[in-house]
Design a protein around this nucleic acid. Structure first.
Length: 211
DNA sequence: ATGTGGATGGTCT
DNA sequence: GACCATCCACATT
Protein backbone atom coordinates (compact mmCIF):
# COMPACT_ATOMS: atom_id res chain seq x y z
CA UNK A 1 0.00 0.00 0.00
CA UNK A 2 2.06 2.90 1.23
CA UNK A 3 5.12 0.74 0.75
CA UNK A 4 7.94 1.72 3.06
CA UNK A 5 6.19 4.82 4.32
CA UNK A 6 3.27 3.05 5.94
CA UNK A 7 5.17 2.02 9.03
CA UNK A 8 6.50 5.50 9.69
CA UNK A 9 3.56 7.78 9.03
CA UNK A 10 0.16 7.99 10.68
CA UNK A 11 -3.26 9.35 9.89
CA UNK A 12 -4.22 12.72 11.31
CA UNK A 13 -7.17 12.73 13.74
CA UNK A 14 -10.38 14.49 12.76
CA UNK A 15 -9.73 17.01 15.54
CA UNK A 16 -6.73 18.26 13.55
CA UNK A 17 -9.02 19.48 10.75
CA UNK A 18 -11.87 20.57 13.01
CA UNK A 19 -9.91 23.49 14.49
CA UNK A 20 -11.66 26.83 14.01
CA UNK A 21 -8.46 28.75 13.22
CA UNK A 22 -7.66 27.87 9.62
CA UNK A 23 -4.34 29.75 9.83
CA UNK A 24 -3.23 27.54 12.72
CA UNK A 25 -3.99 24.51 10.59
CA UNK A 26 -2.09 25.92 7.61
CA UNK A 27 0.91 26.41 9.92
CA UNK A 28 0.60 22.89 11.34
CA UNK A 29 0.33 21.35 7.88
CA UNK A 30 3.95 22.33 7.22
CA UNK A 31 6.02 19.15 7.44
CA UNK A 32 3.03 16.83 6.96
CA UNK A 33 3.06 14.26 4.14
CA UNK A 34 0.66 14.14 1.19
CA UNK A 35 0.45 10.78 -0.58
CA UNK A 36 -1.34 9.62 -3.70
CA UNK A 37 -1.73 6.08 -4.96
CA UNK A 38 -2.95 6.16 -8.52
CA UNK A 39 -2.77 3.20 -10.90
CA UNK A 40 -0.56 1.42 -8.37
CA UNK A 41 1.91 4.28 -8.47
CA UNK A 42 2.72 5.86 -5.12
CA UNK A 43 3.95 9.42 -4.88
CA UNK A 44 4.50 11.39 -1.70
CA UNK A 45 5.75 14.81 -0.69
CA UNK A 46 6.31 16.85 2.45
CA UNK A 47 4.26 20.06 2.61
CA UNK A 48 6.56 23.11 2.58
CA UNK A 49 4.09 25.89 1.69
CA UNK A 50 0.38 26.41 2.41
CA UNK A 51 -2.17 29.22 2.44
CA UNK A 52 -5.28 29.68 4.58
CA UNK A 53 -8.59 30.79 3.10
CA UNK A 54 -10.97 31.85 5.80
CA UNK A 55 -14.62 31.20 5.30
CA UNK A 56 -17.12 33.92 4.52
CA UNK A 57 -15.25 37.10 5.43
CA UNK A 58 -12.17 36.53 3.26
CA UNK A 59 -12.42 38.28 -0.07
CA UNK A 60 -9.71 36.03 -1.53
CA UNK A 61 -11.80 32.92 -0.86
CA UNK A 62 -14.04 31.26 -3.40
CA UNK A 63 -16.62 31.14 -0.59
CA UNK A 64 -16.46 34.87 0.19
CA UNK A 65 -19.81 36.17 1.34
CA UNK A 66 -21.21 32.67 1.54
CA UNK A 67 -20.95 32.12 -2.17
CA UNK A 68 -21.85 28.53 -2.92
CA UNK A 69 -21.78 27.14 -6.46
CA UNK A 70 -21.16 23.83 -8.18
CA UNK A 71 -17.46 24.67 -8.32
CA UNK A 72 -16.87 25.40 -4.64
CA UNK A 73 -19.43 23.00 -3.16
CA UNK A 74 -16.72 20.81 -1.64
CA UNK A 75 -15.45 23.75 0.45
CA UNK A 76 -18.60 23.24 2.50
CA UNK A 77 -17.85 19.56 3.05
CA UNK A 78 -16.52 17.60 6.02
CA UNK A 79 -13.28 18.60 7.73
CA UNK A 80 -10.37 16.57 6.40
CA UNK A 81 -11.73 16.29 2.86
CA UNK A 82 -10.28 17.66 -0.36
CA UNK A 83 -11.36 20.57 -2.53
CA UNK A 84 -9.78 20.47 -6.00
CA UNK A 85 -10.60 23.04 -8.65
CA UNK A 86 -9.17 24.11 -12.00
CA UNK A 87 -7.39 27.43 -12.20
CA UNK A 88 -6.72 29.32 -15.44
CA UNK A 89 -8.42 26.55 -17.35
CA UNK A 90 -5.55 24.10 -16.95
CA UNK A 91 -4.05 23.90 -13.47
CA UNK A 92 -5.64 21.76 -10.74
CA UNK A 93 -5.24 23.14 -7.18
CA UNK A 94 -5.69 21.00 -4.09
CA UNK A 95 -7.07 22.32 -0.80
CA UNK A 96 -7.68 20.73 2.59
CA UNK A 97 -11.15 21.53 3.91
CA UNK A 98 -11.24 22.46 7.60
CA UNK A 99 -13.59 23.61 10.38
CA UNK A 100 -16.96 22.05 11.00
CA UNK A 101 -19.14 20.72 8.23
CA UNK A 102 -20.76 23.62 6.41
CA UNK A 103 -18.10 26.23 7.23
CA UNK A 104 -16.02 26.72 4.06
CA UNK A 105 -12.50 27.12 5.49
CA UNK A 106 -9.72 25.63 3.36
CA UNK A 107 -5.94 25.42 3.12
CA UNK A 108 -4.37 25.55 -0.34
CA UNK A 109 -1.32 23.29 -0.61
CA UNK A 110 1.21 25.36 -2.58
CA UNK A 111 4.40 23.32 -2.57
CA UNK A 112 5.80 19.92 -1.62
CA UNK A 113 9.25 18.47 -1.21
CA UNK A 114 9.29 15.07 -2.97
CA UNK A 115 9.60 12.12 -0.59
CA UNK A 116 8.67 9.10 -2.68
CA UNK A 117 7.93 8.28 -6.31
CA UNK A 118 10.20 10.91 -7.81
CA UNK A 119 10.56 8.84 -10.98
CA UNK A 120 6.77 8.78 -11.34
CA UNK A 121 6.66 12.54 -10.76
CA UNK A 122 9.27 13.03 -13.46
CA UNK A 123 7.28 10.88 -15.86
CA UNK A 124 4.03 12.76 -15.15
CA UNK A 125 5.57 16.20 -15.54
CA UNK A 126 8.14 15.51 -18.25
CA UNK A 127 10.78 17.06 -15.98
CA UNK A 128 14.07 15.81 -14.61
CA UNK A 129 14.02 14.17 -11.18
CA UNK A 130 16.24 16.89 -9.75
CA UNK A 131 14.18 19.75 -11.22
CA UNK A 132 13.22 21.88 -8.23
CA UNK A 133 10.04 23.05 -9.99
CA UNK A 134 8.70 19.51 -10.08
CA UNK A 135 6.49 20.07 -7.01
CA UNK A 136 6.87 23.85 -6.66
CA UNK A 137 3.63 25.79 -6.93
CA UNK A 138 0.06 24.53 -6.58
CA UNK A 139 -0.37 23.58 -10.23
CA UNK A 140 2.97 21.86 -10.53
CA UNK A 141 2.53 19.77 -7.40
CA UNK A 142 -0.85 18.51 -8.56
CA UNK A 143 0.62 17.45 -11.86
CA UNK A 144 3.48 15.61 -10.15
CA UNK A 145 1.10 13.92 -7.71
CA UNK A 146 -1.48 13.00 -10.34
CA UNK A 147 -4.18 15.08 -8.62
CA UNK A 148 -7.13 16.20 -10.74
CA UNK A 149 -10.72 17.29 -10.21
CA UNK A 150 -11.90 13.73 -9.72
CA UNK A 151 -10.04 13.76 -6.38
CA UNK A 152 -12.25 16.56 -5.01
CA UNK A 153 -14.54 15.89 -2.08
CA UNK A 154 -12.62 12.85 -0.81
CA UNK A 155 -11.50 12.10 2.74
CA UNK A 156 -7.74 12.48 2.92
CA UNK A 157 -7.19 9.19 4.74
CA UNK A 158 -7.72 6.43 2.23
CA UNK A 159 -6.72 5.61 -1.34
CA UNK A 160 -6.18 7.36 -3.63
CA UNK A 161 -5.11 10.33 -1.49
CA UNK A 162 -3.74 10.58 2.03
CA UNK A 163 -2.61 13.30 4.39
CA UNK A 164 -0.27 11.86 7.01
CA UNK A 165 1.79 12.99 9.94
CA UNK A 166 5.45 12.18 10.34
CA UNK A 167 5.94 11.71 14.08
CA UNK A 168 9.70 11.94 13.75
CA UNK A 169 9.61 15.37 12.16
CA UNK A 170 8.72 18.75 13.57
CA UNK A 171 8.91 22.31 12.29
CA UNK A 172 10.13 24.88 14.77
CA UNK A 173 8.68 28.38 14.60
CA UNK A 174 12.01 29.87 13.56
CA UNK A 175 11.88 27.71 10.41
CA UNK A 176 8.53 29.16 9.37
CA UNK A 177 8.06 32.20 7.15
CA UNK A 178 4.75 34.05 7.01
CA UNK A 179 3.63 36.41 4.25
CA UNK A 180 0.70 37.66 2.26
CA UNK A 181 -0.83 35.16 -0.15
CA UNK A 182 0.19 34.79 -3.78
CA UNK A 183 -2.01 35.68 -6.72
CA UNK A 184 -4.85 37.29 -4.78
CA UNK A 185 -4.31 40.93 -5.71
CA UNK A 186 -7.99 41.23 -6.55
CA UNK A 187 -8.98 40.66 -2.93
CA UNK A 188 -8.66 44.29 -1.79
CA UNK A 189 -7.47 44.71 1.80
CA UNK A 190 -7.63 40.97 2.35
CA UNK A 191 -4.79 40.51 -0.15
CA UNK A 192 -2.44 41.75 2.58
CA UNK A 193 -3.49 39.24 5.24
CA UNK A 194 -0.53 37.14 6.49
CA UNK A 195 -2.10 33.81 5.64
CA UNK A 196 0.76 32.17 3.74
CA UNK A 197 3.10 29.81 5.62
CA UNK A 198 6.27 28.26 4.26
CA UNK A 199 9.47 26.54 5.35
CA UNK A 200 12.27 29.08 5.14
CA UNK A 201 14.97 28.39 2.61
CA UNK A 202 13.33 25.27 1.22
CA UNK A 203 14.12 25.01 -2.47
CA UNK A 204 10.61 23.88 -3.39
CA UNK A 205 8.84 26.95 -1.96
CA UNK A 206 7.17 29.00 -4.71
CA UNK A 207 6.95 32.75 -5.17
CA UNK A 208 8.64 35.11 -2.77
CA UNK A 209 9.70 35.60 -0.12
CA UNK A 210 11.28 32.20 0.37
CA UNK A 211 13.40 33.10 3.33
C1' DA B 1 17.37 38.04 -10.72
C1' DT B 2 13.39 40.18 -12.39
C1' DG B 3 9.84 41.32 -15.77
C1' DT B 4 6.67 40.55 -19.59
C1' DG B 5 3.23 38.34 -22.24
C1' DG B 6 0.81 34.29 -24.08
C1' DA B 7 -1.59 29.85 -23.25
C1' DT B 8 -6.09 28.17 -22.01
C1' DG B 9 -10.84 27.09 -20.54
C1' DG B 10 -14.13 26.82 -16.59
C1' DT B 11 -17.02 29.79 -14.05
C1' DC B 12 -19.92 33.50 -13.06
C1' DT B 13 -22.33 38.06 -14.33
C1' DG C 1 -17.44 38.88 -21.90
C1' DA C 2 -14.42 39.36 -17.94
C1' DC C 3 -12.03 37.31 -14.58
C1' DC C 4 -9.10 34.28 -12.60
C1' DA C 5 -5.75 31.05 -5.46
C1' DT C 6 -0.78 29.64 -12.58
C1' DC C 7 3.10 28.33 -15.53
C1' DC C 8 6.51 28.74 -19.01
C1' DA C 9 9.42 30.86 -22.34
C1' DC C 10 11.98 34.45 -23.41
C1' DA C 11 13.74 39.10 -22.75
C1' DT C 12 16.39 42.29 -20.25
C1' DT C 13 19.34 44.00 -16.05
Amino acid sequence: MLSNQKSNYGLLPESFFLHKDVCAIARQLLGKIMVTEINHECTAGRIVEAEAYSSLSDRASHAYGGRRTARNEHMYGMPGTSYVYICYGMHPMVNVVTNEHGIPDAVLIRALEPVEGITVMAKRTGKAQDDKTITKGPGNLCRAMGIDKTLSGLFLQSAPIYLLQDPGYSIDDHMVGISRRIGVEGAGEDAALPYRYYIRGNRYVSGSPRT
